[in-house]
Amino acid sequence: MTAPRFVDPSLLTDTADGPALLGSRCSDCGAHTFPRQGGCPRCTGAAMEDVPLSRTGTLWSWTTQGFRPKPPYTGTEAYEPYAVGYVELPDQLLVETRLAETDPDRLEIGMPVELALVPFRGDDQGSVHTYAFVRRTS
């Protein structure tokens, strides 16, 4: 069985703990970005280096998606509810992400979460994955 396809492999890197999102860090001022970029939005320099982003964090804000978006969305044809949010990765940044949990009653600012790769569409060659954050239990 082949590994699931990922929506954009340039967003990911491998770490000892598993896949992580790949960002940039400014070697002059320490600002982080996601995805990678060449210029620093804080100090306006251009000394950015690749950095794996934390696989764990806390939920900073969230919302739900109540209808199937128009293109450029390419998710499953039938509307499947999903949630999105920003996750605070300590000492790095807030990353925007899909959330595995879609029930508003079980989403709460401050809840601990961790990175997961989840399917968001499929075709005759199998499913395509993207990143999401799920509630951290351990």
Partner: peptide, 11 residues
């Protein structure tokens, strides 16, 4: 990147 729209965050 196009992934942002494809995964339903360009909303």
């Amino acid at each position: 990147g196009s992934w942002y729209g494809e995964t339903g965050m360009m909303v």
